[in-house]
Amino acid sequence: MTRSVVQRDTLRGAKLIGAVAVVVALVTLPAYGDQYTLTTFIRTIYFGFLALSVGFLLGQGGMISLTQTAFFGISGYVVGLLGAERGVPFPIPELAGLALVAVTAFLFGLIVMRTHGIVLLMLTLALGQICWSFARQNTSVLHGWAGIRGIQPPSVLGLDLTQNATFYWMSLVIFGLGLLLLWRLVESPFGLALNGIRESPRRMSALGYPVFWLRVTAFVIAALYAGVGGILAAWSSGIVTPTALQLSRTIWILLIVILGGARYFWGPVLGAVIAVWLDVIISQLTPRYNTVIGIVFVVVILVAPNGILGVWERISAKRRRFREVAENEHAEALSTAPKARRRLSRAEED
């Protein structure tokens, strides 16, 4: 007993030390990382938001949505149209972008959230494609393929966000807040209800839950995460084009979420980190990034249908079971025959 408590505390301590080390490494990154590394981390963060959006719906609510990149694009376009082109001061374009994302998600949610599984997949695909086609073909306002250029991050509280390091820190803080909020959401009764809907919407209805409205709410929340990612992306890259909304990106995000482990809170984040950095590493070796990530994906799904964190859980569960068995034997031995006690003491000497 006492031994296992000690072990558990050691494990918790190790995890805490690991977490602190990661946070310190991330915060101090501008001190030792070059500009390219910083930019890559910024990209990880805004794609991380998009991954959280997809992962929240898929992992917590069991909903596969192919519309999330549209929300990523919508907020970016609004920031570009109002901020860069019409000079509307911060934070109006950003808030307007998020508001439009919320309204669009609500309307889309009304259309699709009564459906499940493959029907939901096809409907969200269609809605995403409508948004993409609109962005692509509207030349009068959105400038078609050319998109909107010259977007700049604002100056807030005297911070010069055009500085890469400052922008990185700001992104990191926003991402931290986003994670904190999402974690509370997942742990809340609302989050648990989403899990229930994932497992059995029929049962949730029979228990008296307004399943449809809970799903619509989740859809709007997820869209806002994609929207925040879209704003950071527009600020960081300075441009927004139909590429932000296109299907290949939608699928890429879905894949990285599954790669990391959609069921797990950190799954989408891990997926985003791996996918973005794999991009960097592979691009130095070969132009065939998509081929490589495709192969990685196939292998991971074959070996671990629950993603990388699924493998981790399987290993630690096995270890836990070992420990429990050992503990039980230990306890049994202490409480029963002296012969067993002797056997145990021998075992401990070994």
Binding site: R184, L185, S188, F190, L192, G196
Partner: peptide
């Protein structure tokens, strides 16, 4: 969790993010 969901249906979920289930 299953029993909690069954019982919470009647009480309402509550919107607090500070208090987890």
């Amino acid at each position: 969790q299953s029993l909690f969901l069954a019982s919470a249906a009647g009480i309402g979920l509550g919107l607090s993010l500070l208090n987890g289930w």
